[in-house]
Amino acid sequence: MEVLLAVVIGTLYGGGLYLMMRRNLVQLIIGLGLLSHGANLLIFIAAGLRQGGAPIIAEGKKVFLTLPADPLPQALILTSIVISFAVTAFALVLFLRTYQEVGTNDLDEMKETDT
């Protein structure tokens, strides 16, 4: 399972970076999305994949009955999904406004502020 997920993460990173280097604004934003998915999955497997119960100690017990899965990475991923959702929404609006203002979605046409 780890190997499969590692390949998936590699593909997400590779595809994301490839799309970010394209000149098209829409591909750029898809690339950014893929990259953040890759990072989320990376947290998920870096913390270890484990089949197990919920991390709740049963009533009247002092220890876990079975070794539970670690809940913290999922909390981290949840936070970062929310953040990347908001940021992607903002980026979409920004790119739309830019498209309307500049009249093209080609990044090579947007070199006015470069030195």
Partner: peptide, 23 residues
């Protein structure tokens, strides 16, 4: 707007790297 696109893209890339490092 043109400046913002570059700023947003590069900073999101940096955040993704930071997040991967944290993971």
């Amino acid at each position: 707007l043109e400046g913002s696109i570059k700023y947003v893209t590069l900073n999101l890339l940096s955040s993704a790297l930071f997040l991967a490092g944290i993971g």
